Amino acid sequence: MQHVSSNAYDEVSPPPESLSKIKPDLRVGFILMDKFTLAPVSGFVESLRFAADQSFRSLQIYCKWDWMTYNNLPVNASCGLSVNPTKDLDLKELKQNYDYIVIAGGLLSETRKPPVYLLETLKEIHAARIPIIALCSGCFVLGNAGLLDGRKCAIHFTTRDEFVGLFPKAVTLIEQTYIEDHGIFTCPGGTAIDLAADLIRVHCGEIRAQKTLDYLLIQQKPLHSQDKEKTTLDNPSTYENNMVSKAIAFMSENLSAHVTLKEVAEHVNTNPRQLNRVFLANTNEAPANYWRRLRLEHARKLLANTSAYITNIAIECGFSDGSHFILWFKKQYGETPFAYRKRRHGVDKLK
């Protein structure tokens, strides 16, 4: 790991009046069960905090998070720390305002029989294709909701036997820091920093992920593709419909090519009308919109992690010209590609 000076990331944050215009790269809603385990929650949120602004002022700019409980009342961590919710648990808000929902468990007495309202809420969130992360015994909550049937899940070795007895349809694994299977993440405990860093890397870029690891004094081990599955926008396994999965894979392989939706439809042996229908049913948006988001997401990664010219990035990501790209990028992310790159490269003193 390359070392940086103590003030390498100490840059000027955007002016207050511009903060509301910046769309966060990563939005996380925490649902805390009573007697939740503090370590994974604190490791996860501290990772977000370091990635959230250019310095260390704890400004929620590029990452945002909120604390919730199923009954909107304060809860205590298993160590006794009291936490007040910052938001009410509202299903509409959960669907609209967050990229991930975290259910943080702890003592089994609180997660063996979670309230029905919470289970129904989690089912709705999953149906809306919002990824759910279970920390510690949060997997028991997801098990009760039926969301782990037929899915791989990471279980703490001390609770594995009970979990298998209660949820025999789940595929349980131990000695895994986390596992993702079709939009469900399970993390058995620890600090959850590696899970948070991987999500930051996907949504915010390598620079911010490394900033988090540097300042949490984490020496990251090399990651091989077979070790972990990452959830990304262009991961076809996110969607169970075979036609949609094949179409997304084809789109991802042709981000810069001038391929029409008719050609995409032909690739998956259907017609544009039917392709539009299955996309709306499985992704809640038209294939043209989804493909544009794929291209914009790829462009955002290139802006954060390379020094390529913006015009070249636009062309590589399938846009007809720089102006067209800038227009859609600002519409999607609330700022221009130049502003996005400048703020994220503001922490990059290593180049």
Rank of each mutant, 00 (worst) to 15 (best):
G165S: 10
H182S: 03
T186R: 05
A170V: 06
R201M: 11
A154F: 00
I174C: 03
F163D: 05
V171K: 15
E162P: 00
R201K: 14
P188I: 02
A192L: 03
T191Y: 09
G189M: 03
A170K: 07
L166M: 12
T191R: 01
E162Q: 07
V164M: 03
I155H: 09
V171S: 11
I184M: 00
H182C: 04
T186L: 04
P168T: 09
E175S: 13
T191S: 06
G165C: 05
D194Y: 09
R160E: 12
G190W: 12
G190T: 07
D181P: 13
D161C: 04
D161S: 14
F167T: 03
H203P: 02
G183P: 05
H203K: 15
F163G: 01
I155D: 09
G190E: 04
A196G: 09
Q176T: 09
E175Q: 14
L166E: 05
T159P: 00
K169E: 10
L199A: 12
P168Q: 02
F163E: 06
T159N: 00
T191C: 01
A170L: 09
T172R: 08
G190H: 10
A192M: 07
T159C: 01
D194N: 14
I155N: 07
D198V: 08
P168M: 04
P168L: 04
Q176K: 15
C187A: 13
G165M: 04
R201T: 13
